[in-house]
Structure formats: structure tokens, C-alpha cells
Nucleic acid binder design. Structure first.
Length: 255
DNA sequence: TACTCGTGGAT
DNA sequence: TATCCAAGAGT
């Protein structure tokens, strides 16, 4: 849920989710569409599908217990470099570097003296964090969490609160008098209004809103541009977020 | 590598 | 109002 989604938006949804499905086996026992429906408006609904798939994989391959091994975690659906190490470090207390967008920014500023991090690089990011990680196992997990929290609360992207920063005296960016970012510009995010994402979101909201099949006519009412509408629906079918139960009738995936 | 994938709060 | 950007992953 936290992948590309602010923590405060996740918290209430996570609470509902864990009450309904306390274990991977509980989630694996329901159709994937139920996970997509409960995902509600968290965004990127493919994550719900992958989380359900991971629950099935954990149930079948790991006796229903979330693995602690990073490679075993990486093999699960929807679990990548960040999430695998976050689970190993925060759920199991193991000593692994955990690098998210906040950590990358703190390292860029406090260590490298740059206003913004370079584009994410698995090798460079993990190496940089490994070099900072305390040796004691119990300290490592706290440090991982502390770097993320510092970036999320104090060393923020837009307006960093340097006056409140506990490491301001040692910050390389501050010591260099806040030089502006000079590296490669990150790709600008495309406009959401009028985008395929917008149309996919409209169709998904319709599918979530009812347990009856949604018809072509209802989907047509959602968006006027038919090529774009067709493209969005085809994409959802291809992703497995929607299935055709009959010609011109669609639901969330039922198995 | 570059692109795609939702949604909504903050500025 | 428009832009930014958020505990990334898959292809």
C-alpha cells in the first residue's frame, strides 16, 4: 500500500484490511476482486492484485508465513527492492539497507551535499545506505526507519524544515550553503486529467461500486472518447483487473 | 532504460 | 489554478 502512496492515506485502509484479512491465508482464500474492491481509492490497483497473488504464493510456498529472507521476498509478486528489505528489516529486525524515496533524498543532501538525489539506482542506493548502516543489528533497523522518517517529516522534498533538523550541523548540503540541484532533470509526470490513467480509474471505480456486471453502455457513459475508452478497458482486461463475464459485461476478477 | 500505472493533499 | 510528488514495481 505504501508504494508511491503517502503514509497518512494508507493507515486507515490498512487497519480495515488487517481486520478483515489478518493473515496471508485469509487473503488468499477470497477472490482477487475482493482485494481490488477493498483497495478502494488507494490507487494503482494492480498492487491489490499483486498483494493477493503474493498471499497465494506465501500460502502455497511458505506455509502461510511471510518469509524473512530477502531473496524469497523478492520472488513474491509485487515485492521489489524496497519492500523486500523493508519487511526483512522492520518485520524481522534483520540488518539490511532499506532505501526509499525519503532515504535517497536525505543521503543526497546530508551526505552528498546535493539538493536532490540522482535517479534511483539499485546498486548505488544500496551501497550508499550500506556504508551508513550501523553494525549492531538492533541499531540498523532503527537507523533505516530514522532515515525514512527524517526525509518524510523534516528533510522534505519541497520545503525542508532545516531549522528543526537534528543533523543540520553535519549536513553537507547546508555546509555547502544549499547549492541548487544541477544533475539530470527527472521526467515530468504526465497530466492526470484526460489521461488513460484517469479513464482506467473511472472504470475501476464503477467496477468497485457494484457486485453486478458493468455493461458496455455504462462504461460508455463514463468517458466520451471511444478509442481512449477502449484502450483503457483493454488494458484493464489485459492486467486482470477486469474480466468479461459475458459479451459487453465486466466484473472484478472472481478467481 | 524509459515508460506505465491512481489518487489526492500541499504549495 | 497548476504543479509537485508520494515508504515502487513490472515490463
Amino acid at each position: 500500500m505504501l508504494q508511491q502512496t503517502p503514509v497518512n492515506r494508507v493507515i486507515p485502509r490498512l487497519a480495515e484490511w488487517l481486520e478483515r484479512w489478518p493473515t496471508p491465508g485469509d487473503l488468499a482464500a477470497v477472490p482477487p476482486g475482493e482485494a481490488v474492491r477493498a483497495w478502494a481509492n488507494l490507487g494503482y490497483p494492480r498492487r491489490a492484485l499483486r498483494l493477493h497473488a503474493a498471499a497465494v504464493e506465501i500460502t502455497e510456498r511458505h506455509d502461510g508465513v511471510v518469509p524473512a529472507d530477502v531473496d524469497a521476498l523478492l520472488a513474491l509478486s509485487g515485492i521489489g527492492d524496497y519492500t523486500a528489505r523493508a519487511v526483512a528489516a522492520f518485520a524481522y529486525g534483520l540488518r539490511h539497507p532499506v532505501v526509499d524515496t525519503n532515504t535517497r533524498r536525505v543521503i543526497a543532501r546530508a551526505v552528498a551535499g546535493q539538493a536532490e538525489p540522482a535517479p534511483p539506482s539499485r546498486t548505488r542506493d544500496l551501497d550508499a545506505m550500506s556504508a551508513l548502516l550501523p553494525l549492531p543489528v538492533s541499531d540498523a533497523a532503527v537507523f533505516n526507519a530514522g532515515m525514512m522518517e527524517l526525509g518524510a517529516v523534516v528533510c522534505t522534498a519541497r520545503i525542508p524544515r532545516c531549522d528543526d533538523c537534528p543533523i543540520r550541523a553535519a549536513c553537507a548540503w547546508r555546509l555547502a550553503d544549499y547549492p541548487p540541484y544541477s544533475g539530470p532533470r527527472k521526467a515530468v509526470q504526465k497530466k492526470f486529467e484526460g489521461s488513460d490513467r484517469k479513464v482506467r480509474g473511472l472504470i475501476m471505480a464503477e467496477l468497485r461500486a457494484t457486485r453486478h456486471p458493468v455493461t458496455d453502455a455504462e462504461i460508455t457513459d463514463l468517458w466520451a472518447d471511444s478509442p481512449q475508452r477502449d484502450r483503457a478497458l483493454a488494458g484493464l482486461l489485459s492486467d486482470g483487473l477486469a474480466i468479461a463475464t459475458a459479451p459487453g459485461e465486466y466484473t472484478l476478477p472472481q478467481e
